[in-house]
């Protein structure tokens, strides 16, 4: 998902982008270069047409306003950028985005790690539970969200269950704090299985002798976890943190189906706000400015994690 994934992978060959084995019969070189360009052409042209050109267009559109009904398209200079600083909604939107991303990362990674640690043993039934925890990943996102939306209605299944044991449940999707919690929870259970599988793979990569040695030394389980397990799988943890944060910035269907950004603007995250401005209010210019903002946030996060990786993560080779 990110640039740095290049290095976070335990690659068995030297990771030189475009690098090919050195010793190579000379006569093939020119023909090879042509074939190389042909091989990458579909991908490279696709990136130019569907990523780089649109990026350029965003810059262009952000200085224009398009009125769909009137059929006008006019230059407005920096007006849309100025709006970014006077928009009374934007503060709340960024706050909702931050809360959502942080809550999601913490909940998702904690649960994924707990599940992986519990399942990292040889025992009958482990495979069954692994399948169970992973299964929501393959359930259509919108179907999953619709079911949860149904369960979370004021008179829906969850409150019905709670009522049978005498608890009056909250109106989950209509009250600010529970609405945000609901969106996070729905997303966590949908995708935690992926991170769990990554953690399981990482845990199985930790040399068994390390645990044996620690146990012989009489280390307590918590010490073993923090001193051995955690550092050994830290590259995977950092990778999943970044993947989950970047993924959390793209949450759209869940918001659109569950809360439409409400109540108030408590669950209006940046992506949903961008969609509203551009496609519901017809403010394509301001929508483009918001897209630039989203891009910058992802860029900064990637650079930060790239620097953190060098500093903190246990060496990988």
């Amino acid at each position: 998902m990110t640039l740095t994934a290049v290095r976070a992978l335990p690659s068995r060959a030297p990771a030189r982008p475009g690098g090919a084995p050195r010793r190579r019969p000379h006569r093939h070189r020119r023909q090879d270069a042509l074939v190389g360009y042909l091989f990458i052409a579909p991908q490279a042209l696709g990136i130019v047409a569907f990523v780089l050109v649109p990026l350029g267009l965003i810059a262009y559109y952000s200085a224009h306003e398009w009125n769909v009904l009137a059929g006008t398209f006019r230059f407005v200079g920096t007006e849309n950028f100025e709006r970014l600083f006077t928009d009374p909604q934007l503060g709340g939107v960024l706050q909702a985005t931050t809360i959502f991303s942080i809550a999601l990362v913490i909940a998702n990674l904690t649960l994924a790690l707990v599940l992986a640690l519990l399942l990292n043993r040889r025992m009958r039934g482990v495979g069954f539970f692994r399948t169970v925890f992973f299964s929501p990943v393959v359930v259509s996102l919108v179907a999953w969200t619709i079911v949860w939306g149904f369960l979370l209605q004021a008179d829906g299944g969850i409150n019905g269950m709670l009522a049978t044991i005498g608890i009056e449940g909250p109106n989950w999707l209509r009250e600010g704090p529970t609405a945000m919690a609901s969106v996070v929870i729905v997303q966590v259970f949908k995708n935690v299985g992926l991170n769990m599988v990554l953690f399981l793979a990482a845990l199985q990569g930790v040399p068994h002798e390390l645990f044996e040695a620690a146990r012989v030394d009489g280390a307590r389980p918590s010490t073993i976890f923090w001193r051995i397990t955690f550092p050994m799988i830290s590259p995977t943890i950092l990778l999943t943190v970044i993947i989950t944060i970047v993924g959390s910035l793209q949450v759209f269907a869940q918001i659109a189906v569950l809360t439409q950004g409400g109540p108030g603007t408590s669950t209006t995250v940046l992506v949903y706000y961008l969609f509203q401005q551009a496609f519901q209010f017809g403010k394509f210019g301001y929508g483009s400015v918001l897209a630039i903002l989203l891009f910058l946030i992802v860029l900064v996060l990637t650079i930060v994690q790239w620097m953190l990786r060098r500093k903190w993560v246990f060496h990988e080779n």
Partner: peptide
């Protein structure tokens, strides 16, 4: 395959990983 500009093109392609679909 070794061809001139492979590194640069690879980096440009990787930019695609950085762009949420919502941006474009």
């Amino acid at each position: 395959i070794q061809f001139p500009g492979a590194n640069a093109i690879f980096l440009v392609v990787l930019v695609g990983l950085l762009i949420p679909a919502e941006v474009t």
